[in-house]
Simulated assay, not measured.
Amino acid sequence: MPVLRHIIADMIFDLHCHSKASDGALSPAELLQAAEDANIDLLSLTDHDTIAGYLELREHPTSVKLIPGIEFSCQWNGINIHIVGLDVDPDNAQLRTAIENQQAVRIERARTIAAKLEKLGMPGALEGALKYCSDPGRVGRPHFAQFLVEAGYVKNAKQAFDKWLGNGKCGDVKSLWPEIETVNHWIQEAGGVSVMAHPLRYKLTFSKLNRLIRHFHETGGRAIEASDQQGNKNLLKRMQELSTELGLLASAGSDFHSPEWAWCRLGQVSPLPSAMKPVWTAFKNTPFTAAIDID
């Protein structure tokens, strides 16, 4: 099927990005316009713990094939892990309840982060972060980063994460998040595909990454973001080999948040590994014509 192979090879996709519905800089409509401008064929808006952005877009006329998605926060062995749910049913009652639970956790977590920052001499962080977030239930660390920049404590968002908000820093509060198996269950109940987001960014040794990926797979995980333009090439190769061994599907996304972030442009996604099947071959709620298995 040479024509179909050509369609798949040339398809531009992005299955991990964010809008103002969580912590992105663009409104859902602006993000969709940016996707059209970038000639993206397949897009999933995966805002943190909400599908509000997708709901705004699902009746919007567009040339882009939209896949309903969400990025859930969870934990494994005290490490903050992100799981993307793709092709979920946005009207599923279990999914809606899960989102309500996560947003309640976000509010409590934000209070904890603000209290820690105040102890370090940075008062007013919660109010400052909420200025950049229209819904308290969606507040996240990028909103705190914006406050820290505005208040003059850091020069930019990267410095905010490096000093105060990143993994292992005072703003890295994860004890309130559910375990991986809970999030996998939520996504399964909503008919979706669980995808481990950016596995190389957790800064794990291969031994720990091996255990994490195997646990994710054993508890219902079905795919992994298998391309990483910024990751360690040797570790990336070993991760891809392990994922292939386990039969995990391959996904990828830019993790786009803002046009100002040059390192993650919308649609800037590395090719999927040839040895792994693409995640869209498992989509049922929103099947894509180029997802036909051509093996």
Score class of each variant (00 low, 15 high):
120 L>N: 10
199 P>A: 02
256 F>Q: 05
236 L>W: 07
273 P>F: 03
214 R>W: 03
197 A>L: 07
200 L>Q: 12
183 V>Y: 02
157 A>E: 15
92 N>T: 03
66 L>E: 13
199 P>L: 03
182 T>S: 01
259 P>M: 01
28 P>T: 12
22 S>I: 11
49 D>M: 11
277 K>W: 00
273 P>R: 01
59 E>N: 13
165 L>V: 09
89 D>H: 12
28 P>M: 12
282 A>P: 01
281 T>F: 00
80 N>V: 01
284 K>G: 05
13 F>M: 13
25 A>M: 13
256 F>K: 01
162 D>W: 01
192 G>L: 01
80 N>S: 08
189 E>C: 06
125 A>R: 11
194 S>M: 02
61 P>V: 10
221 G>S: 11
187 I>L: 09
189 E>P: 00
41 D>W: 00
100 E>M: 03
238 R>N: 14
57 L>M: 04
23 D>L: 09
147 F>I: 04
289 T>I: 11
19 S>E: 13
80 N>Y: 02
21 A>T: 10
123 P>I: 02
104 A>W: 00
192 G>Q: 03
46 T>F: 06
270 S>H: 04
120 L>S: 15
82 H>N: 09
265 R>L: 07
204 L>Q: 08
112 T>V: 12
142 P>T: 11
6 H>S: 13
115 A>R: 09
225 E>N: 12
207 S>Y: 04
26 L>E: 15
241 E>H: 13
114 A>E: 07
216 F>I: 07
241 E>W: 01
175 S>Q: 09
293 D>G: 00
34 A>W: 05
188 Q>N: 02
68 P>E: 14
64 V>Q: 07
124 G>Y: 15
43 L>P: 09
111 R>C: 04
154 V>L: 06
159 Q>F: 07
150 E>M: 08
19 S>Y: 15
263 W>N: 04
232 N>A: 10
86 L>Y: 14
106 R>C: 05
157 A>N: 13
34 A>P: 06
260 E>S: 06
68 P>L: 11
294 I>W: 06
186 W>N: 07
149 V>A: 13
186 W>I: 06
68 P>I: 11
202 Y>H: 04
75 Q>A: 10
142 P>F: 11
285 N>T: 03
215 H>T: 15
146 Q>L: 15
117 L>M: 15
195 V>M: 06
224 I>A: 07
170 C>F: 01
147 F>Q: 12
188 Q>R: 12
113 I>P: 08
139 V>Y: 04
165 L>R: 02
268 Q>K: 09
175 S>E: 14
280 W>V: 08
146 Q>T: 10
30 E>S: 13
205 T>K: 11
281 T>V: 10
127 E>W: 02
274 S>H: 02
255 D>V: 01
219 T>Y: 09
211 R>E: 14
204 L>I: 04
115 A>T: 05
235 L>I: 07
276 M>C: 02
276 M>D: 05
221 G>H: 11
95 L>Q: 11
49 D>N: 11
148 L>E: 15
99 I>D: 10
46 T>R: 05
26 L>I: 09
111 R>L: 01
